[in-house]
């Protein structure tokens, strides 16, 4: 009997160690799990390529391709590579500050997180998403079957969504669904992560993010991820002066 108990404890311990998460049965650490979600979705500093697809109510599609870099918890840049009509546009996010550089305008303009530079259901905060831990505090966490359920509250009123409900797969500690709410309690949109893929460098995460919104019935947007690679950048890369030169990093 003692051997059986020792064996069970050993297996459980191994499972916990393998998943990389510390989760005592009666004291879930929401902050640690959210931090693990962030690290499982991407390295702290990296470059990646994304395709955004807006699907209209009639089924027609519009596609955008972006080159994206991120450093730390609060710095991000995205450069449009396609289509030709958008090529050269770039956006910078520093904490809650966002700017858009249009080549023909020739100077960065401040934009807000609820606007959308690509139309569709994704807004600027979705496209320039920082780590969840940098924008949200964990208000509560519960577990159910194979999922954690996290309630997150925005740290300031310049964050796009007042609060989030995040469903996290227990085994992989990767979000599967995120419901985004306004301060009024209205559901703004739902994000669905899917198609888990090995991106190399130990990063195994969803390669597709899909969203829909009760406020934009019939519209759907999809984000596909590829080429996620850890990379270090200088802080000055994330400045308005460098925004017109992002292409030089590729």
């Amino acid at each position: 009997m003692t051997y059986v108990r020792t064996g069970v404890i050993t297996i459980l311990t191994l499972l916990v160690v393998m998943t990389g998460v510390s989760m005592p049965a009666r004291a879930l650490d929401g902050d640690a799990i959210l931090l693990q979600v962030d690290r499982n979705l991407n390295p702290e500093s990296y470059e990646m390529y994304r395709k955004l697809i807006n699907i209209e109510p009639d089924g027609s599609k519009r596609e955008f391709v972006l080159y994206t870099i991120k450093k730390g918890q609060d710095k991000m840049v995205a450069l449009f590579l396609a289509p030709a009509s958008e090529k050269g546009r770039s956006t910078l996010r520093l904490e809650d500050n966002m700017w858009l550089y249009l080549p023909n305008v020739g100077k960065p303009l401040r934009i807000t997180s609820l606007q959308s530079i690509v139309g569709g259901v994704f807004n600027n905060s979705d496209i320039l998403r920082l780590d969840y831990t940098s924008e949200y505090d964990v208000e509560s966490i519960t577990e159910q079957d194979d999922r954690f359920h996290l309630n997150l509250k925005a740290k300031s009123n310049t964050v796009a969504y007042d609060h989030l409900e995040m469903e996290v797969d227990k085994e992989t500690v990767i979000p599967t669904e995120i419901r985004c709410y306004a301060s009024s309690g209205i559901l703004i949109k739902t994000l669905h992560y899917s198609k888990v893929k090995d991106f190399g460098n130990g990063l195994v995460r969803p390669s597709m993010l899909e969203t829909d919104s009760p406020l934009q019935k019939g519209y759907r947007s999809v984000m596909l991820f590829d080429g996620i690679t850890p990379r270090e950048f200088s802080d000055e890369t994330f400045t308005l002066s460098f925004l017109p030169k992002v292409e030089e990093l590729r």
Binding site: I53, S60, R220
Partner: peptide, 14 residues
């Protein structure tokens, strides 16, 4: 005709 969106149509190679 508008391209109908289906999951298996979504592909991307950087």
């Amino acid at each position: 005709s508008p391209v109908q969106a289906q999951d298996d149509e979504f592909s991307f190679d950087f």
